[in-house]
Write a protein that binds this DNA or RNA. Sequence first.
DNA 1: TCCCAACCTGCAAACGTTTGCAGGAACCAG
DNA 2: CTGGTTCCTGCAAACGTTTGCAGGTTGGGA
Lengths: 349, 349
Amino acid sequence: MGTFAGIFAGTFAGSQLKHSTIVDIAKKLKLSASTVSRALSNHPDIKKETKERVGKIARELNYTPNTIAQNLKRNRTTTIGVLVPEIKHDFFSSAISGIEEVAYQAGYTIIVCQSNESFEREVVNTNLLMHQRVAGVIVSISQSTKSGDHFQDVIKRRIPLVFFDRACSDVDASKVVIDDYKSSFSAVSYLIEKGYKKIAHFAGPKGLVICYNRWKGYVDALKKWKLPVLNEFVRYGGLHEQDGYTSMDVMIKEGKRPEAIFAVNDPVAIGAYQRIKEAKLKIPDDIAIMGFSNNKITSLVDPPMTTIDQPSSEMGRKAAEILIDLIEKRLSKPKSLVLRAELIVRGST
Amino acid sequence: MGTFAGIFAGTFAGSQLKHSTIVDIAKKLKLSASTVSRALSNHPDIKKETKERVGKIARELNYTPNTIAQNLKRNRTTTIGVLVPEIKHDFFSSAISGIEEVAYQAGYTIIVCQSNESFEREVVNTNLLMHQRVAGVIVSISQSTKSGDHFQDVIKRRIPLVFFDRACSDVDASKVVIDDYKSSFSAVSYLIEKGYKKIAHFAGPKGLVICYNRWKGYVDALKKWKLPVLNEFVRYGGLHEQDGYTSMDVMIKEGKRPEAIFAVNDPVAIGAYQRIKEAKLKIPDDIAIMGFSNNKITSLVDPPMTTIDQPSSEMGRKAAEILIDLIEKRLSKPKSLVLRAELIVRGST
DNA sequence: TCCCAACCTGCAAACGTTTGCAGGAACCAG
DNA sequence: CTGGTTCCTGCAAACGTTTGCAGGTTGGGA
């Protein structure tokens, strides 16, 4: 006291107010730090009266435990890393929401990163999460991800890892996915049964497994019903609205009009919708269209769009549940879960 | 060596692989931890050859710096806490995306929490973020938030705080908002100039400042043009689709049909859209409708909806920029930013 | 009186870094 | 041989906790 430190205690310290610590409480009560620590964590060794005194001062000083120090000591964190291609996409934001929900209940917080569909950013972010010593990681990979080495690093360090929706095929980790092949196959079968014969597919990037599977389901369904698979009716592109718009544009300009379109996902289908409307064509009379994901928007366009329900929020919840299980039971055996994706028939087909 | 510890080193430790540390590297090279630390951070005191040797071993051992220990030592983190009502809502997920973008560039990671519009969860999450010693916090408050005490705690600790969109009126902190009153006033004025006289308003929860301001803008615009403000034409509700649907439902059942509706936000407007279509009424001929936010969906419904563009992603980016500025310059003076919200006229009015 | 629980509390080390300071080695000039 | 550089490295403390262990006090029974 009476020193400069004393004078300035409780005011600025480089313009930053010092958080109060266990030691501050201890000094004030002439106790040791260990006793205070035990008192705060309600340890049976500490008598009630002491606990009450400690609690009172803790409140007065606005004490909050320093999670960083706790984590360092315990050598673990209660933080889950979440890495997705783009946060703002309906599917991912719903999934994140589901993850947060489960994590919150279990006492975890989530760090969210996005790769923006860039492989490099995915690698950087993965490393960032490892630096941060997250307790586990939930990932949906980017379109451009070819190698899974950065995920192998995660596994090597025995940090639990769960993929959802877009998994990395050369990494042996837990997954929460839907059966893209089967969903696509039965969706296209439905179109065929409805009488459509000339069915086009707006496919996603060839490298992405889920896109490959959806494409394969489309092809196999056509084959099963002995319909020809025409190159001119399969267009590869990205996963955004713009891609659907462009694909449709090309088809219209080339004058090859299919009777129905099966799009790799909803945004692509929506993009096609717009171009179709601009061309003053009627959905589904002139051209039927079907998406994939059941994004919110599909039920609101006119006519409402037939699509496949990909339970985004449930996928997030399940991924989080599996991850937390892996973390807390210290299991290392990967666990896979395939969720049902149901066809939702609406007015566009 | 030769001890159990020696035998097991490099394998499991309670089924969890030990991360290698600076000390491990130091031992291997018969250097001290400090030298290794300096070598890794490219300190000029260390000669090149040593740096190279350290770098090599670091790579071999898969060394990654323990951010937790660094944070503890430096007494700060590079983590930003983000607290929003609901992650999956278009507006918020775009904003989060913008925040992540800026944070990533500046070397920060973000922890995302949602309050689910619950005051209690907002308080719990705010405390959680403080425990985690985040470097700063970006918040959009819940519908049910009445008191700002939990934010005062944040400020007391001199943790920089930035509100976006929904700010807490009794807390003196930085804000990134739009001028809800002015936007609403001019939007309703536009409706009036277009000739609509009987204009209804589907308002949000009275407690939320932004909703109050939008309501006030509506009322004042009517007054300015000497139109009556009718109770039967103002309906209070929540901010979701369901609320818009219900409000519209009531109006239709009561047989009071306005010529135009100004909704507090897009989801509410979309809900009304659905009910209007069910009633086989034509938009905008039978009833015009206008939303607020320029959610993606508004341009895709039929007819495309007139709305007010609330630049979600930019609001996120600006909030993050301001926050990082506050953190790095150690400023304590709040900074407010009002962004332009432009009326986007489409087919629904 | 002595002994032994029962009950509290404190000491000190540890978690993995960073960093001020001291100091050793090598070299050169005087 | 002395003294002074320059260059590199190590020691030890510190960040805020947690926790095994030791030790102190109190009170009761014999």
